[in-house]
């Protein structure tokens, strides 16, 4: 599934936390993709993985339970945080309590 034409790094370059997060996304949202196949820099919402606002709620819940990180809409960097697996993982790394 790795695409040669995208600017995203190949999946095998995912960091350990990114892979943990990819597994969490796949299980929380019952996605039918291999966690390792989610390109770290591909968009999570809209194009790319194609998530939407229903998924955002589920995902926020799973992230709060697993990492102790509370996501908020009024975070000014919200768009950036949810942009990709990589940016979301970076946000979690910075704020995780477990």
């Amino acid at each position: 599934m790795a695409s040669g034409h995208s600017t995203a790094l190949p999946p095998q370059d995912a960091l350990p936390l990114e892979l943990d997060l990819a597994r969490l996304i796949v299980s929380a949202l019952s996605l039918e993709v291999e966690p390792a196949s989610i390109a770290p820099e591909a968009p999570l919402f809209g194009e790319g993985l194609g998530l939407d606002s229903i998924d955002a709620l589920e995902l926020a819940l799973a992230i709060s339970k697993t990492f102790g990180v509370q996501l908020r809409s009024d975070d000014e960097r919200n768009h950036q945080i949810f942009a990709s697996l990589r940016s979301l993982a970076a946000h979690i790394e910075k704020h995780r309590t477990r």
Binding site: Q70, S73, D74
Partner: peptide, 12 residues
């Protein structure tokens, strides 16, 4: 007035 979507937003 604010956006309330995630649980933390709503509680805040």
């Amino acid at each position: 007035a604010g956006e309330s979507f995630f649980p933390s937003d709503v509680l805040g």
